[in-house]
Nucleic acid binder design. Structure first.
Length: 873
RNA sequence: GGGCGGAUAGCUCAGUUGGGAGAGCGCAGCCCUUACAAGGCUGAGGUCACAGGUUCAAUCCCUGUUCCGCCUACCA
């Protein structure tokens, strides 16, 4: 659903800009999604009872390519199904030859500048995927766990205890991960903590091992948390690693958990080979038997999970490649601060800055096979000094035949591949042909806009900005539009495990792509997540239907139905034998009004799209087509085009106006609903649309407004609605034509109404009408008060007032009886206590309804009585 | 712990420089009027979370409170 929204928004922008005359490039493509893709294929292999190591690297990669060609097409199929108007001829994939070339170029250049380096330090490791993860690829989830207080005996002889200090010769440490104690190499306390001051420099006997470890000072220790003493496990905790490196001399690193999540030999014979969590249980049991557990507390703490397979990650010390992004990040911050890149909504800029300002070096190596192999080779011989200085490392754009340092033929390529995001970061220019200076690159870089969801601001957006500045010397895009996340109706994130995933393809099957697209857009308010509701899609399917019917009505009234084409000149419509030269400025009020409204709406939509207010644009066109064009204009136009009234001249004017408004509305709507608009548009007579497809017709913009017509029309609307209200309130049969008197408050209102009586007649079913500033309220009439007029409907002859009042009074008596009954029931405590809550709620709702019904009938009676026709009767 | 966002009609949500409280769905009444009953017309329903403040005027600006959601972080 997220991708659907993303695609639709980009398609709207593309279609809108294309129709507005821009040379639009929307380049489609996919990345190779290294870890995720490899996992999928590995699962397949597991089902076949084998694994990638059996298969070997080359065969495994071949296998993934096969999978990619079969299933990668699905994404493209979905994009097309959504109507995405991409340039399919330029579709790219991150493992394409061209993009791979760009990847190697970037790697080598960064290496040569000293910005790429290899280091051995703690990284987040996924024991299941068996690879390093970047900081971003770890998701933290808060878990309820135990904080275990473990007693570490002081090494005898026990030094004198300080005042109020440690009793019993122990230092107690608190930990959430007891199994890591097997790799502890120190206990840290705050240097100013009086409880422990005297023990700094002494040692404790690390339980379950034969080691003695030092008590050291470190400022990071919070004396108020736990016992104020922290066990230090440099090999399995990022903080502890920092403490270890800070300490002089640096503390020893003892790795007790291996890459597979099992305990290593360092953990001791008793624990070696055990799963880390099994080991935790055993350690706790053993400590308990030694009476070394002081207590356990419930404790909430955040645990890192692999973002691909959700396995709990493990900090692990391994050699990895890193990009030093400190300097590039500074530039990336600057371009946003200076407004060269705008992030919309602006509030995301803060998020961006916060991350960029604290950015850490980017771990780019992954211990998987699906991806760009790192272009680094290691010389196995290192035959000369030069080679040894380089540590035998060869970094090259092309696969080297021999070691450039010493000439050895024994070169072995680094086994690792690059983080997928490394290649994605180059997308804006790698897809346009970089590092070659192509025409595409010149024409389309920098791009105008990137549309994406916030969850990849760091993964993708920030890195594209950094790489774009670094290698193109120019930002990769001007605007970044961050759209909402699509959630389920309850506001929960959609996920397979929750089972609340909505499949866009099913939505499109059920309601059509246009309705589905429109729903996503109409709900896409800036800065707010979308709670997706299927009912809403149904509502917009009705809109498609409404539009279809309106178009059908208009086509039905073209005469002849298929006007022959007229070559050259202005062209023209054939309507009842009249050809060409149809006025483009209707003289009737309704026509002038709808064209002005159309102009206003066109402005509104263009403005909204310029500011990425997609939902405003969508609602604007929806409101116009349904509630102005269909509900008002088409109804009014009927008075012109139906044979009974109106002459041929106005008929043609109305016909033209209907077609013109339809055509313009379709073009306005097209970016949102590409399919139905094209379909209808193709059916409109040719002279109205000279282009072969609505996709490349002109987007409406800067049409003339007619404020006078809009103002004048407001009088008509007020009058019609006033009369309808009276009819509705008094339940006057729709088939009954009535007489009306209108007292206007201004001469203008009087004139306008006078000139446009036909609209009142058709829209409010009025027979005779009297109006003016001097009109008196006729005896026995109902009244509606509006801002520019007072409307009177004489009831004599329309209703039998007395009978009507009698009927209503009878009704009201019944209602009052029911109210009394319910009232008694709802005051009955026994009922309230015993009845199910649902029933009580229902009864209460019923009560409310009856009350409002009573008020309503009362209002009608009052109106009838005010009509004062009783006496007359 | 830090930061961001939300709280408006029964439900889902708009509300762009402070002055009219709105839409869709739902609900009630009337209507099969020759484009559309997947429709038309009419209507009911809201102290715009709470408390203060600024202003002639606050849903909107400021402060605080409560309740949700999210991001982020080295409390073991």
């Amino acid at each position: 659903m997220g991708h659907a929204l993303n695609t639709v928004l980009q398609d709207i922008l593309s279609r809108w800009k294309r129709m507005s005359g821009s040379n639009v490039l929307w380049l489609p493509g996919t990345d190779h999604a290294g870890i995720a893709t490899q996992n999928v294929v590995e699962k397949q292999l597991a089902a076949e009872g084998t694994d990638r190591h059996n298969l070997g690297r080359e065969a495994f990669i071949k296998r993934i390519w096969k999978w990619k060609t079969e299933y990668g097409g699905k994404i493209i199929h979905q994009l097309k199904r959504l109507g995405a108007s991409c340039d399919w001829s330029r579709e790219r994939f991150t493992l394409d030859e061209g993009l791979s070339k760009a990847v190697r170029e970037v790697f080598v250049r960064l290496y040569e500048e000293g910005l790429i380096y290899r280091d051995n330090r703690l990284i987040n490791w996924c024991p299941r995927c068996h690879t390093a993860l970047s900081d971003l690829e770890v998701e933290y989830e808060e878990l309820e766990g135990n904080l275990t207080y473990i007693k570490y005996p002081l090494t005898p002889p026990v030094p004198p205890l300080s005042k109020g200090g440690i009793e019993g010769g122990y230092i107690t440490v608190a930990t959430t991960r007891p199994e890591t104690m097997l790799g502890d190499t120190a206990v840290a306390v705050h240097p100013d903590d009086n409880r422990y001051k005297n023990f700094i420099g002494k040692t404790v006997d690390l339980p379950l091992t034969k080691r003695k470890i030092l008590i050291i000072p470190d400022n990071v220790v919070d004396p108020s948390f736990g016992t104020g003493a922290v066990k230090v496990t440099p090999s399995h905790d990022f903080n502890d690693e920092a403490i270890a490196k800070r300490h002089s001399p640096p503390l020893e690193f003892i790795t007790v958990i291996g890459a597979d999540g099992r305990m290593t030999a360092n953990a001791g014979n008793r624990y070696a080979g055990m799963d880390r969590y099994e080991c935790r249980k055993l350690v706790l049991k053993d400590l308990n038997e030694l009476n070394l557990i002081e207590k356990k507390e419930k404790h909430k703490y955040a645990v890192g999970h692999c973002y691909r397979c959700k396995t709990i990650t493990e900090p692990l010390s391994t050699p990895q490649w890193y990009v030093n992004v400190q300097f590039i990040a500074r530039d990336a911050i600057r371009v946003v601060k200076e407004g060269k890149i705008k992030i919309i909504p602006k509030t995301w800029e803060n998020t961006y800055f916060a991350w960029m300002e604290n950015i850490k070096d980017w771990c780019i190596s992954r211990q998987i096979w699906w991806g760009h192999r790192i272009p680094v080779w290691y010389c196995k011989e290192m035959k000369n000094e030069k080679c040894r200085i380089q540590n035998g490392t060869v970094v090259s754009r092309e696969t080297p035949e021999e070691c450039p340092h010493c000439g050895s033929k024994k070169l072995i390529q680094d086994e690792d591949v690059l983080d997928t995001w490394f290649s994605s970061a180059l997308w804006p220019f790698s897809t346009l042909g970089w590092p070659d200076e192509t025409a595409d690159l010149k024409t389309f870089y920098p791009t105008n806009v990137l549309v994406t969801a916030f969850d990849i601001i760091f993964f993708w957006v920030a890195r594209m900005i950094m790489m774009g500045i670094k290698f193109m010397g120019e930002v990769p895009f001007r605007d970044v539009y961050i759209h909402a996340l699509v959630r389920d109706i309850k506001g929960q994130k959609m996920s397979k495990s929750k089972g609340n995933v909505v499949d866009p393809l099913i939505m499109m099957d059920r309601y059509g792509t246009d309705a589905f697209r429109f729903t996503l857009v109409a709900l896409a308010a800036q800065g707010r997540d979308i709670k997706f509701s299927e009912e809403r899609v149904e509502g917009y399917r009705h809109f498609v239907n409404k539009l279809w019917n309106a178009a059908r009505f208009i086509m039905m009234n073209i005469n002849p139905p298929n006007p022959p084409l007229v070559k050259g000149g202005e062209g023209g419509l054939f309507i009842k034998g009249v050809q060409g030269g149809i006025s483009h400025s209707p003289h009737d009020l309704a026509g002038r009004w709808i064209l002005s409204r159309l102009a206003d709406v066109a402005d509104d939509i263009n403005r909204a799209l310029e500011e990425y207010r997609f939902n405003d644009a969508a609602n604007s066109i929806y409101q116009f087509i349904w509630h102005e064009f269909c509900d008002w204009y088409i109804e009014m136009a009927k008075s012109e085009i139906q044979p009974v009234s109106g002459g041929p001249k106005s008929e043609i004017g109305a016909m033209w106006c209907l077609l013109y408004t339809l055509d313009t509305s379709l073009r306005l709507l097209h970016p949102f609903m590409p399919f139905v608009t094209e379909e209808i548009w193709q059916k409109i007579p040719h002279p109205i649309h000279p282009s072969p497809s609505i996709m490349i017709s002109d987007y409406p913009r800067s049409l003339p407004r007619d404020h006078r017509a809009e103002e004048d029309m407001s009088y008509i609307i007020e009058a019609v609605m006033g009369i309808r209200t009276i009819r509705g309130e008094l339940n006057i049969s729709p088939s009954l034509k009535i007489n009306v008197s209108i007292k206007t408050f201004s001469k203008t209102a009087e004139n306008i109404l006078g000139e446009n009586v036909q609209y009142l007649k058709i829209l409010a079913k009025v027979d005779k009408i009297e109006m003016g500033m001097t009109v008196e309220k006729p005896e026995g009439s109902a009244t509606a008060v509006k801002s520019s007029m007072e409307i009177y409907v004489p009831l004599k002859g329309v209703l039998n007032i007395e009978a009507e009042i009698n009927r209503l009074e009878k009704d009201i008596a019944e209602v009052e009886e029911s109210i009394a009954f319910l009232n008694k029931k709802l005051l009955n405590e026994e009922f309230l206590q015993k009845a199910p809550a649902e029933v009580v709620k229902k009864e209460k709702a019923k009560y409310e309804k009856l009350i409002s019904m009573k008020e309503r009938i009362g209002g009608s009676i009052k109106m009838l009585k005010e009509a004062e026709v009783r006496n007359e009767a």
